[in-house]
Design a protein around this nucleic acid. Structure first.
Lengths: 143, 143
DNA sequence: AGATTAAAAGACATTTTTATCCTTTATATG
DNA sequence: CATATAAAGGATAAAAATGTCTTTTAATCT
């Protein structure tokens, strides 16, 4: 569905959203351990996320990763786009060029609405929205 | 969403469903050309599909691939399961073990219903169902 | 300034996916 | 039976995804 890298990215961002702040930054290794994401690979993921302003980072002593107020407003879709590219979720199920509602491929209607809803949800919901659910006990990040 | 191999598989099966029959078998290379699937790779895909009774094949002169009456009843989900395994579409968005309706991960509800519907559609619809749509002009396989 | 800390960056290794090529086996036909 | 045909099977190659390691850069603190 989405790549491992995307899963790692979402997990790490949510972990930061729940546990970090501008004055409580978290080291890569301290995200790696509770999330079970290999440290070196996670570092690469965080680096990429940082480059796209999805997470914030500071080097040196007292440094680490955290989410700014801006970062928290990131739509989930952006995380997936950065890690997996634009096409993985949105492209035609058979990778045909001319596939749309008027000229659907054989799988289009089968998947069409549900996929569109899915992507819409990812675009409309931000990191902050998910954190609200976690804090309200509506969903769980087992760490 | 689904792998390239799955896309190739669905395309090839639909091509056979529309163009072949037990007394009009089609060679791998004659599927490869119109579908733009690399011949050698397609052969591997067809081999795998044949092994799982999703397509039928006969060797030697006059041989080739075709779909039997039974083959046409194959649910689309089976094709994807054979090529991509069981988990790609159905597993938790964050690959967490304990993620279900009662104990949802943060992305579960965001995607949950739409994903369940999607998989249900793939399970309920067969190759033959898609062919009906194609023949009725409701969808298009551009070949 | 020098030492230490931690992310950024680059190089490299492994695994999986995608793709190609060559040999073998089954089938049909002269 | 010999030959040609076409899928099955096996070996190999290239590309992408995943994972690791080392060096460099930026920041902090004596």
């Amino acid at each position: 569905m989405i790549s491992n890298s995307s899963k790692y990215a979402v997990k790490a961002v949510l972990y930061l959203a729940v546990n970090s702040s501008e004055d409580h930054k978290i080291l890569a290794k301290d995200i790696s351990t509770p999330t079970n994401i290999p440290k070196a690979y996670l570092s690469k993921v965080l680096q990429e996320l940082s480059r796209h302003n999805i997470v914030s980072s500071v080097r040196g002593p007292g440094g680490g990763f955290y989410l700014s107020k801006e970062n928290i407003k990131t739509p989930l879709m952006k995380i997936i786009q950065v890690m997996d590219g634009d096409n993985r979720l949105t492209s035609c199920m058979l990778s045909l060029q001319e596939c749309d509602a008027e000229h659907p491929c054989p799988m289009h209607d089968l998947v069409g609405n549900t996929k569109v809803n899915f992507v819409k949800n990812l675009e409309e919901n931000t990191v902050g929205d998910l954190v609200k659910d976690i804090k309200a006990g509506k969903s769980f990040l087992p760490l």
